[in-house]
């Protein structure tokens, strides 16, 4: 028995014993891994779309909603004037202690051209929304038509497990509503009333936030996300939530 095991082990030792197919597969895997690690959180366009949505060839399933609301952020245009935060607060009645969208600041002391970069964040309206999965009463859910992650305020029991599950810190408890509150792409306040843009996208003086229907190939969101020469990434891809907010520069 043990002798057999040793024998097998000896047979498996070394690359010579591998078939060429296996070797090719192994090398491919190595390349993929190096690609991921070399790029860090930066991913090329192809990998973003592949990673974020579906396998190639499932094009129709790539953007499962219609309209499939999405946003792409032009990071380097953001100057943290916070007009988006103010517009959001006014439009959606956000209390002082909370926010639906925020601007983060990244300090880069060894940056050559500038030493600071600003990063707008909001709910990523993930295709695989962890918050909607963990909610015990389905108070937060994916809208079946447009994919917006919504809140049904009256069902929220305030267990806050959605806040725990969200990899983007996009949720807070609204004491006035007695429910967790979050970005809904201004669905109740603007989109359902015929407006095309969210309050934050409209308020941005620098054109950082481009909002639109990514299932529409003529939309700017679609064209920018699918532009091969453009580097596009998402935040925390490793969380596997398939977010719908993209980031780019330029």
């Amino acid at each position: 028995m043990i002798r057999n095991l040793i024998k097998n082990k000896q047979q498996n030792e070394g690359v010579e014993a591998l078939s060429s197919d296996e070797r090719r597969h192994f090398l491919k895997m190595g390349l993929k891994l190096t690609g991921v690690f070399a790029g860090g959180s930066l991913l090329s366009l192809a990998s973003v779309v592949e990673k974020v949505y579906a396998t190639p060839g499932q094009f129709n399933d790539k953007y499962p909603y219609k309209p499939h609301y999405s946003m792409i952020m032009h990071l380097d245009y953001c100057v943290d004037c916070e007009r988006c935060i103010e517009a959001c607060a006014v439009t959606n009645d956000i209390p002082k202690y909370g926010f639906r969208t925020n601007i983060l600041e990244r300090q880069i002391p060894d940056g050559i051209d500038q030493q600071v970069e600003f990063m707008p964040v909001l709910c990523n309206h993930c295709n695989v929304a962890q918050c909607a999965r963990v909610c015990p009463t389905a108070a937060t859910y994916k809208n079946e038509q447009n994919g917006i992650v919504m809140m049904d305020v009256k069902k929220c029991i305030g267990c806050l497990s959605c806040q725990l599950a969200c990899p983007y810190n996009a949720r807070y408890f609204n004491e006035e509503k007695w429910a967790v509150d979050k970005c809904n792409f201004c669905f109740d306040t603007r989109l359902s009333k015929g407006e095309d843009l969210t309050a934050c996208a409209e308020a941005c003086p620098a054109g950082v936030r481009i909002f639109g229907d990514i299932s529409d190939q003529r939309s700017r969101v679609y064209r920018e996300v699918h532009q091969v020469s453009r580097t596009v990434w998402v935040l925390r891809p490793e969380a596997g939530t398939k977010p719908n907010v993209f980031y780019t520069r330029g």
Partner: peptide, 26 residues
């Protein structure tokens, strides 16, 4: 710890989410 326990008594029963670990646990 639950912020609105009254809603919990109602909606845990009439609006269960079967993918939620919390729901199953409770």
């Amino acid at each position: 710890e639950i912020k609105v326990p009254i809603r919990m008594l109602i909606y845990n029963i009439i609006s269960p989410n079967f993918t939620s670990s919390i729901w199953w646990m409770g």
